[in-house]
């Protein structure tokens, strides 16, 4: 007959055996920064040196005719300074896949059961569950900025899928005005390359917005020295509020009043 002590020992041993080995996890420690700018698909950018937010700057996603038209309208709105970046309102995440290409620092925190992608320019956290669980069930999941991510390890590559996105409702892919729909699904392969860079290969499948999968690769460079992630708060001293009616981004002087010419005339 088993004693209580033996039972407790057996439970402890079985739980230890189930623990993934920390020592086998890849070392992705440190602070990383995005390379190549915040235009999402650099390989199809026009002009080739375009920056997200420049008037007329665009990329060429494999859009359906409907979404190509939407994109063109957004590009025109960007050029007219009437395409407010959703995060200008402060306080909302940038959303997936844009979370993989923001400025400031990144941390890729690997644990046996979850990997966290933390961005200094927040509030953004991608939690990738690797403990075998499935995506949220259909009767629970609802559209969110960052979505729901689950994955697994293929060697030292983290492979994860992301669903449950808001799509064009409150997120953009980048400041050229690129968008995807709430039916989009991401497949990301995240790894540290032999050259020391982190690489995220992101494939978006979207039966509404895209005619075929859209694959983009983003890379991140590790910073050296005494680098630490610091607090970031968009609302701390936001001198660029958006007019909720016109979508225009105002610029405030140090006294809190707009310096924009049209605001001066009012």
């Amino acid at each position: 007959m088993l004693s209580k002590t033996n039972i407790a020992a057996a439970v402890l041993l079985s739980s230890l055996a189930a623990l993934p080995a920390w020592a086998q996890m890849p070392d992705w420690s440190g602070v990383w920064v995005l390379e190549g700018g915040t235009l999402y698909d650099r390989t199809t950018a026009s002009p080739p040196d375009a920056r997200a937010g420049d008037p007329g700057a665009r990329q060429h996603p494999p859009y359906t005719p409907e979404y190509e038209e939407k994109y063109k309208r957004n590009i025109a709105a960007v050029a007219a300074d009437r395409f407010p970046d959703p995060i200008t309102m402060c306080g909302v995440p940038v959303g997936f896949p844009r979370v993989m290409q923001v400025v400031d620092g990144y941390e890729f925190v690997v644990t046996p059961k979850q990997t966290w992608i933390l961005t200094e320019n927040g509030p953004n956290v991608v939690r990738v569950y690797t403990d075998g669980r499935e995506h949220l069930s259909d009767d629970v999941i609802w559209p969110t900025y960052t979505g729901d991510s689950v994955g697994h390890w293929e060697g030292d590559t983290l492979v994860f899928t992301t669903i449950g996105l808001r799509g064009e409702n409150g997120t953009i892919v980048d400041r050229t005005g690129a968008i995807i729909s709430d039916q989009a699904r991401g497949l990301t392969r995240l790894r540290k390359r032999e050259d020391g860079r982190m690489e995220a290969q992101i494939t978006i499948e979207d039966p509404v917005a895209l005619t075929r999968p859209w694959t983009v690769t983003k890379t991140y460079r590790k910073l050296s020295g005494d680098v630490r992630i610091m607090d970031y708060a968009c609302a701390e001293n936001n001198r660029n509020p958006v007019d909720p009616v016109t979508g225009k981004t105002y610029t405030l002087g140090p006294d809190g009043k707009p310096i924009d010419v049209d605001a001066q005339k009012k």
């Binding site: 300074d81 395409f83 995060i87 400025v103 981004t249």
Partner: peptide, 22 residues
């Protein structure tokens, strides 16, 4: 030219940059 100012893009992050003529 726009290309000549590319390397010195400030890390402006939270809003549209369209009000500035780059």
């Amino acid at each position: 030219s726009a290309s000549s100012v590319l390397p010195i893009q400030p890390a402006v992050s939270h809003h549209s940059f369209a009000m500035f003529d780059r």
